[in-house]
Design a protein around this nucleic acid. Structure first.
Length: 263
DNA sequence: TAGGCCATCTGGTCCT
DNA sequence: AGGACCAGATGGCCTA
């Protein structure tokens, strides 16, 4: 299961092959792991990585004397479980990427894990904000107020997931508040960075792109706007900054620096 | 070449 | 006892 389609790296090599490769390799880490699998486990040296805690050998050899082969088998089993766990995690991450308002495709480099999580977070925040605004508008409409009518109704050519809003035949510049309140040429980078201030901390999506540089954004479900029709409505506005908790991790500050460098 | 991202291995800890 | 989860370490691949 290699979710990194853009990479030649195989993330899901055959377990046995992987182990064999690792064990037979002469790299430092490989030597170490092989050493740990045998010596560390069977003799309880407990000096690996400078750790002084009891070694795993003690955990597994209490009842009976286990041979190195048995230890190796056990290690393989444990490693396999861990691999599967991480693969499942990556599958979930891919599933998350699929529903994110971000261009998908073979020519587009996929979001990193951290970027996926941050985008997801801000997406949720934005949707929550939109939902609140929608509730408020509905409350105004049915509360006697007519002024709002159907928000953006005059434009009528774009809808927030309303199937009744038939799209114009012209090629739409698909976007959503999340992807850009400004209707500048909808490059993924500008749209994302404009609409998601916090997301702006993420490495500029343009840098994630391979050719073509400006792939069409594919929004998850039904959110479509149209080029040349600026939408001033609250729903289409970027959520208030307060909704975006500043990203403070060191990694993100680094990403922010990357974005600044992109300008 | 440095840095980013990732997969994998590993030992520790907690839970069932 | 065994599995799940976690974090540290390491090496490989890719990009600027």
């Amino acid at each position: 299961m290699n979710s990194d389609s853009g990479s030649s790296r195989s993330s899901s090599p055959d377990v046995d092959d992987m182990y064999a490769r690792k064990s037979s390799s002469s790299s430092g880490q490989t030597e170490f792991t092989a050493k740990m699998s045998s010596e560390h486990l069977s003799r309880g040296a407990g000096a690996g990585l400078g750790r002084t805690s009891p070694d795993i050998g003690g955990k597994y050899k209490l009842k009976k004397q286990v041979t190195e082969e048995e230890i190796q088998q056990l290690r393989l089993k444990i490693n396999g479980r861990e691999r599967k766990r991480m693969h499942d995690l990556n599958l979930a991450m891919d599933g998350l990427r699929e529903v994110m308002p971000y261009a998908h495709g073979p020519s587009v480099r996929k979001l990193s894990k951290i970027a996926t999580l941050l985008l997801a977070r801000n997406y949720i925040l934005m949707l929550t904000s939109s939902l609140d605004e929608m509730k408020r508008l509905v409350g105004e409409i049915y509360g006697g107020g007519h002024h709002a009518a159907f928000h953006c109704g005059a434009a009528a050519s774009h809808g927030h997931g309303h199937a009744a809003h038939a799209p114009l035949p012209a090629a739409p510049a698909v976007h959503h508040a999340l992807l850009g309140g400004a209707l500048a040429p909808p490059t993924a980078s500008s749209a994302l960075s404009v609409a998601l201030p916090a997301l702006g901390s993420i490495r500029a999506p343009q840098s994630l792109m391979k050719t073509p540089p400006t792939p069409p954004l594919q929004v998850g479900t039904g959110f479509q706007h149209w080029a040349g029709l600026p939408c001033p409505c609250a729903i289409c506005q970027v959520p208030p900054p307060a909704a975006h908790v500043p990203i403070t991790s060191t990694g993100l500050s680094r990403l922010s620096a990357d974005k600044e460098a992109m300008k």
